[in-house]
Nucleic acid binder design. Sequence first.
DNA 1: GTTAGCACTCACATCAACAGAGTGCTAATA
DNA 2: TATTAGCACTCTGTTGATGTGAGTGCTAAC
Lengths: 342, 342
Amino acid sequence: MQLDDRKMRILQAIIRNYLETGEPVGSRTISKFTDLNLSSATIRNEMSDLEELGYIVQPHTSAGRIPSDKGYRLYVDAMMEEKERQVEEKNDLLLQKEDKLERQLQQVAKVLAANTEYATMISAPRYQKNKLKFIQLSRVDEHQMVAVIVVEGNIIKNNMLQVTQALDDETILKLNILLNTHLNGLSIDEINLGMISALKQKAGIHSDIVSNVLDAVAESIRTEEDLEIYTSGVNNIFKYPELSDHTRASEFINTLEEKQQLAELLHETFGTEENTGIQVYIGDETPIQTMKDCSVVTATYELEEGMRGTIGIIGPKRMDYEKVISTLKLLRNQLDVLYKKT
Amino acid sequence: MQLDDRKMRILQAIIRNYLETGEPVGSRTISKFTDLNLSSATIRNEMSDLEELGYIVQPHTSAGRIPSDKGYRLYVDAMMEEKERQVEEKNDLLLQKEDKLERQLQQVAKVLAANTEYATMISAPRYQKNKLKFIQLSRVDEHQMVAVIVVEGNIIKNNMLQVTQALDDETILKLNILLNTHLNGLSIDEINLGMISALKQKAGIHSDIVSNVLDAVAESIRTEEDLEIYTSGVNNIFKYPELSDHTRASEFINTLEEKQQLAELLHETFGTEENTGIQVYIGDETPIQTMKDCSVVTATYELEEGMRGTIGIIGPKRMDYEKVISTLKLLRNQLDVLYKKT
DNA sequence: GTTAGCACTCACATCAACAGAGTGCTAATA
DNA sequence: TATTAGCACTCTGTTGATGTGAGTGCTAAC
């Protein structure tokens, strides 16, 4: 059932007002706030309808109304449709480029938290689809080797390999050539165990040691750095009384510290790149149980070509969706500037 | 002025009781609790004296007494003297060894937080005194090289170097030999700019590019990974009402998120290795302003030989100092087992 | 030096009274 | 027929009075 225009405007007025104040909003307020020129009595009738339809609820008799999840959802959907309405007023997040990926992510999270006044999280970009640029095996000492792997986007991974018996220089050289000629240019995704065993054949040497080393290298390449998630602005929740009683605050902080669930949530957004790449979870819609009083807005971002991750903003259900979404878009622009058009 | 034995015992009784309950403790409680067999009236007189001496304070007239910072200090000092009193009852923290340093630290913080019910922090171990084991420069592509540096304790650092013009293979080989023969076995601390310029001389080549590369390598080696601090158990503060009103909790969380100040605090402990390596900051004693309602216990730890860092436990002033300290000692033992006697 | 006894203080809980915001309903109005 | 004024009703939150209990300090007796 479609709401008529007047009901829609009233609903929006209620929600806007509630976003600002956090207090249930009454009919008189709406009567004065909007340019509908309706008396509070009329508004009351309409509100009664809206409640029946499930868009707003009353915390208790004789209180004003607050939006229900369904109400928020309608509001957000409507907002997303009339996209790019006004020009962004704020147009600089003061983002800086950092050399180390870790720092960059941490900084993005921090800047976003400062700009939105909500908690933020960011997952490290995936690079499984990125191509291998360089791989090298070197002997450190008798029993240890180090494998250095550079992937497009200048992600550097390294792993110490323990070997029971040292390989001689010639073998190492051979292995390096073998690895580079066969694996360079392939994406991490494409390097699988079958390929490694083919390499073992090609190596011609059937020594166990070489075989072990190759296995270890393969593992290094494919190991996913899971759970690499950075958060910031956790203490922003204290700005929203509805989230900051002891129990809720403690749960909230715990969830953000554990990160396991955040990872799942962020990964979920990862598929939805077709549309704007921005996803809004309102209340119960989020898969994280402890966040059912919150809303989460997620967006994919991209640093270098192909290096995509997800960023999320967590706040009360009455968060300023409009600002959050436009800030996220702005962030993406700024990242594009920093990483592409330099 | 030295307290007589009876006053001391009363003070201890007050503190022990307060540690448990968090409530101001009155004379009647002490009268019943201790085996001194004194009436509450006598205790009252003694308490009056203790208050005059500054060891305890009254939140308001007609409330019991709570320990002052000075009182806690005396208590802790006394406790530290009669060391190793009883055997540790709990003797396993269920600590596991992790391959990646980062994970290891995070895990230690988490385990400690779970065992103590306080917030914890841990700084990455310093390795400036560790010796360089291996260094290698490799060309990734036309404009980029990667420097891989392995230090004792298997710390691996790597840095991408941008070069305007590619070096030929021969030069790279030469540089690698040069770097390894001259720098291996030296501690990071010992590698300074003078040494690098000597190397430049020895290189015999006076090309700017080589010189730049050497500078970049030197920088990579010496760059301190500052601020590498992991925290855990932040939400434990909600177990202590005196720390978890909105303002305080928000400040607390903020301090733990920012990490800058934590780093300074942890570094401060680093010097004091002579004694037990365990330091207790009570209330105002901590250099962190926002933690003046907390106590912090810090301890140095060691993973591999020479790789020392600091760990800290943050809780209310009425934290269970005894348990915290013995847990920290236990932790050190377990780390020793994991890293040395394997 | 220790203790019983007592008056006194202060925080905290309970409760009634009340103000205020908001609603739903009814009857009047345009 | 849609809108509105008016009114009774409901519920929350505040305020102030009152009482209770834990604890103290002091004095006088042991």
